[in-house]
Amino acid sequence: MISLKEVEKVYRTEEIETLALSGINLEIDEGEFVSVMGPSGSGKSTLLNVIGLLDEPSKGSVLLAGETIQGLPDRDQARIRNQQVGFIFQTFHLISDLNVIDNVEIPLLYRHLASFERRSLALRALERVGLASRVRHFPSQLSGGQQQRVAIARAIVGQPRVLLADEPTGNLDSQMGEEIMKILMGLNEDEKTTIVMVTHDARLAEKTERIVRLFDGRQVN
């Protein structure tokens, strides 16, 4: 499903050059649930961003669902992000001006679906995360756990084949974290969604099928 070969990512400024990823070779099968661990600054989020087309590798190749993704024009990258990938962020990144259902609908806006179709898919996604009763609420009216569930609904509403979760429980207490983890595992089991999750929490990582460890931008397992 996901294939990285000799991936390197270098951030350059006028003064310094930072090697964020180096020599990454990674194969993730369809339906696999993989967690990525490592200390801060080890390149975990960069790896996720490269897989999710939010960032381009400096070297190497990335294949997503058999398609080489680097070097694609903006429109094609946008299409792949929209159809193949769903993102879950540590800080939720919900749009504060939009209510819950409008936030969840965002990926569908770029698929040019009819309004009623978007509504119905968004409601289904919210039901999946147990928030169907909060559709008219705004993010500020929800708890952290509820906001993250809205973010998951947004990530899964377009039924992507890959979910990329960047420390999805990082801003939540352990109980909420467990709830979020349960939802992710359910998605992986029921929908066979491939999930790559960055986490610092070893307990949560152990629940996944495989742990990829990074240190100073290199794979260490």
Partner: peptide, 8 residues
């Protein structure tokens, strides 16, 4: 967010 979810 919009870019991440498919806005060109």
């Amino acid at each position: 967010v919009r870019k991440a979810f498919g806005a060109s």
